[in-house]
Amino acid sequence: MTAFILKRLGFAVVTLFAVLTIVFFIVRVLPGDPAMAILGDQASEAALSALRVRLGLDVPLYQQYFEFLGGVLVGDWGVSMVSGRPVIDEILKVLPATLELTIASLILGAVVGIPVGVWSAVRRNKLPDYVARIASLLGLSFPAFVSAVLLLMFFSIQLRWFPVISSSQGGGLGEHLRNLALPAINLGLIMAAYITRVARSAMLEVLNQDYVRTARAKGLAFAIIVRRHCLRNAMIPVVTVVGLYLGILIGNSVLTEIVFNRPGLGKLIVGALNQRDYTMLQGMMVIYTLIVVLVNLLTDLTYGLIDPRIKYS
């Protein structure tokens, strides 16, 4: 197990290096000028050139690259070219909000998606199955920003149960959860839709296995067969999807963050991209890569917990 983890971490270092290298060069190839983002559109060419020198953008690209790598190795991620604030501070200030939203959505998605998916498989081609399939299809095809606005209009404007601005300051745990509720529901329902579909198809496959037929033939109650013999075996594809989706979710939560006005990594990366804030984009990529690598590692380790036959070598 330790050897497996170390091996995976070794791969992670290589992945991180590759991602950083690609991102470093891609952002610099893109049209757009950080100096103009800072000085504004009235700035003269001379002022823009002077700022490019101050930002270190005038030195050869390879030199910028090695300086950047050297910085990353010693934990210096530089300062944002646009705001002047340290990159790591900017990221760490909003990272908890993103993780909180992601985890809340994951829990909601799993709590709703797994039982509905299993129920749908067990009631295959009956009314509950049709309802679950249509609901999950709706969940997958509904754009997150549309569902977000609808949730706000209903729960915040009509019922006044939740605030429109989810980032409201102050308040205790109750207030905090109230702020989190709508964004988590918005993302969680999309996740639930994914999980429902995967759980349903995985369950259907397991239900057709010989050992299930045998269990039924020997007279075991169907509920026991599902709970004891099927559920665990059907969970591996679900865990795979959750692991994959978690990485995507962190990146794709930007629309939810914008509509519910929550702080988060998504908003940070969109802002950095619009303003060609190279240092911020590079810092963001380090974080994203680390998160994706970590989530994949945890997913792999979870397989062993679900199915003891899986060995790590």
């Binding site: 606005v149 706000l152 209009m153 429109v164 601005i165 914008i258 509509v259 519910f260 006005n261």
Partner: peptide
């Protein structure tokens, strides 16, 4: 509040 819709709703 970057979203026009959210700003109006708030």
């Amino acid at each position: 509040i970057p979203s026009d819709a959210s700003r109006d709703l708030a």
